[in-house]
Every structure is written in C-alpha cells, then in structure tokens.
C-alpha cells in the first residue's frame, strides 16, 4: 500500500471538516508526545502493522519524476522502511541513556500544518480508514550549536477502531537529496 499524492476529491462538507479537525488534533497530540519525549505513548499511536517509510530522493530528468524521483517501498535502500518492531527498537535505544547520538537528548519541535483528509472510508462521518496529507517542519537542536531543519510532506493512513485512532501507513517525503544532517534520530 503506497498512497500517491493527488488533489483530494472528497466532498468538503460538515462531516469532512469534523473529521479533519479530529485528524489535526491527533497529529498535534502526536507531535506533543514526541516533543515532550513521551515515546512509549507515541508508540501506542503506531498500529501493530505500521509501515513507516521515508524514501531517498533523486535528481532525475524532467518527465521521470513520477517513476524515478523517490526510492520505492520495499525495493532497494531508503532512509526508513520500518515496522513496529524497529520503531520500538529505536525508542528502546534512546531509553538506554547511552545512545550517544541522543545523549544528551536533542530538543525537537514538530510543526504539522496543511492538514487535509484526502479520502475516508466508508465515508467522512463514519470513517474507519482515513487518508491524509500534511506538511511537517521538524526542528532539532542538539548539545550547543548543532541544529537541523527537516521539512517535507507526510502521507498518513489512519485507522479508527471505536474511539482509538492509529497510524497504519506513513510515507515521509523529506525535501532533501543528500541528507543535510549527520543523523536521523528524530521521529517523523
């Protein structure tokens, strides 16, 4: 499952805006968990079958973007191609206190914006599966003078089971070719 970007066709009625608000709140809660280092709570937002994917992005000739710009899910190397287990491992590593790339811990802020619902199933009012797009700006400051900005798009599929929302699929499109950071220790 890999969601391609396109202009949403969903009808923007009251049910849509209610759903979008719910999604926004979910993303803000998630961002707060990460920024406040409540990593275990954050992991609970990740579905057991999550696909967490960040491709590498290449400079390609005009007309080849659709096919060649981004590395593909489950094909060759990417930055991240994670499941729940590896995400848990990454959290576990930070919690050892001796993961030196995060010891002392970085200061990180997640800004999530341009949130849209691109489709909802079975419909916006009763959605159990919600496809979304948003922009992120993740600011990381580490030790004294080290700082990084990660800016890009995110395409998430959220699933709702009763009152509980979780991320089932996350595609992170970082606007960089050569990674302009020594590490990707932040979650996206």
């Amino acid at each position: 499952m890999d969601i391609k970007e396109h202009t949403p066709t969903i009808i923007r009625d009251d049910a849509y805006f209610r759903l979008r608000q719910e999604v926004e709140e979910f993303f803000y809660d998630e961002a707060a968990m990460l920024d406040e280092r409540r990593f275990d709570e954050w992991l609970d937002l990740m579905h057991d079958d999550i696909v967490y994917f960040m491709p590498m992005r290449r400079n390609v000739k005009f007309g080849m973007h659709q096919d060649r710009e981004d590395t593909l899910l489950e094909e060759g190397m990417s930055w991240f191609n994670e499941d729940k287990w590896t995400l848990e491992k990454r959290v576990e590593q930070i919690m050892t206190g001796v993961h030196y790339a995060e010891e002392p811990l970085s200061r990180v802020s997640h800004l999530v914006t341009n949130v849209q619902v691109t489709s909802a199933f079975p419909d916006a009012a009763n959605a159990t599966e919600i496809n979304t797009s948003c922009r992120f700006y993740i600011y990381q400051n580490r030790v004294e003078h080290e700082h990084y900005s990660f800016v890009g798009r995110r395409y998430d599929t959220l699933v709702r089971d009763g009152g509980r929302m979780q991320v089932r699929h996350r595609r992170i499109i970082l606007d960089q070719n050569v990674l302009l950071a020594k590490c990707l220790t932040a979650f996206f």
């Binding site: 930055w79 993961h99 030196y100 590490c183």
Partner: peptide, 24 residues
C-alpha cells in the same frame, strides 16, 4: 536490506553514534 537500514548510515542505529564521536 532491512538489516542494513537499521544498522548503517544516518538513520542506522549503530552508525548514528559513530557520527556523534566524529563530530565532536
């Protein structure tokens, strides 16, 4: 491939700690 991604490079859990050393 999955092992390489979690081990190596800037997103790799092992080599992130190398880079911290080399930087400082």
């Amino acid at each position: 491939r999955r092992f390489y991604m979690r081990y190596s490079g800037p997103a790799g859990m092992t080599e992130q700690d190398d880079m911290e050393n080399w930087l400082y």
